[in-house]
Amino acid sequence: MSIRVMVADDQELLRAGFHMILDAQPDMEVIAEAADGAEAVSLARELRPDVVLMDIRMPRVDGLQATRRLAGPDVADPVKVLVLTTFDLDDYVYEALRAGASGFLLKDLRREELVNAVRVVAAGEALLAPSITKRLIGEFARRPRPPRSAPPSLGSLTAREREVLSLIARGQSNAEIAATLVIGEQTVKTHVSNVLSKLYLRDRVHAVIMAYEVGLVRPETP
């Protein structure tokens, strides 16, 4: 089955470029384009794409608001949103992820990175460019928020699962976690799955947010 994608961007040439790249893949189909956030929300609710490729800066309703309406914590049946933006929008990273985005990438990515990102998000995983992960951590360091209370479910994690959560929060991939802990990558995947399930988290992006918000990991920690 093809991955059904919708592209939302107010720049027609960018929409056409993303459309062409993704539609050329044997396992993808671009089913709609939207020129602003309001249109993106309307079309996504009607067509239920597997992934929405969402720009941040758009007229009428921006990509941040559109993401919240489609994938926010109060949405019963969320749509997977992959946010694309430029380097000068660091302040939006944290809020976009809080709004429910499953991934955040920079627009200067290569063609194969875009295609892979859509596949990863469609498969139910979360995805952040390494540089975005660093910016997200920097957001906590620059503008610290009062720690929120740790959820009771945090106590259900084993010592190893807490280690894995801490490494996820530092932006490590499964392969990097496996190397750090000297365990198999499949074992890491099992631990990650257990962490998300026990903490009722949608994906590893939101695990990063929770780990910093409750003070499990601090930005100044090496």
Rank of each mutant, 00 (worst) to 15 (best):
V61Q: 12
S102Q: 08
N194H: 04
A129Y: 07
L64A: 08
F87D: 13
L201W: 01
V30A: 10
V52L: 05
A122N: 00
T67Y: 04
A71T: 01
A141H: 04
A38R: 06
A101T: 03
T190S: 08
A71D: 12
G138W: 08
E46R: 14
A38D: 03
G103N: 14
V83M: 07
L127D: 12
L53I: 11
D27V: 11
F104K: 05
R69L: 15
A159H: 11
D91C: 04
S102W: 15
T190C: 05
P130C: 09
A141L: 14
R218I: 13
D23G: 10
E29W: 03
L196K: 06
E12R: 10
G155Q: 11
E139H: 14
E12F: 07
R68W: 02
L216N: 07
G138C: 10
D23M: 07
E161A: 09
V115F: 12
L97C: 01
E125T: 01
Y200R: 08
T158S: 15
N116A: 12
R57C: 02
L84D: 02
V118I: 11
I177H: 01
A175D: 03
G171Y: 14
G215A: 02
L14H: 10
D108P: 08
L70Y: 09
N194W: 00
T133C: 15
P222K: 00
G103M: 06
D88N: 15
L114N: 03
L106K: 12
A16G: 02
M210E: 11
G155F: 01
E112Y: 03
P26L: 11
D23A: 15
A123F: 05
K134N: 07
S153I: 14
D77Y: 07
A66S: 09
V188Y: 04
K80W: 01
M28Q: 12
K80V: 00
I209R: 05
L128T: 12
V205W: 04
V7Y: 10
E163R: 10
E113M: 09
L199K: 11
G63Q: 12
L127A: 06
R110I: 02
Q172C: 07
R202P: 03
L105W: 08
L181E: 11
V75L: 05
L165A: 15
L43M: 13
V93F: 06
L14K: 11
E29S: 14
P144Y: 06
Y200M: 12
A16T: 09
A178P: 01
L165V: 09
G184E: 09
D23C: 08
A35S: 15
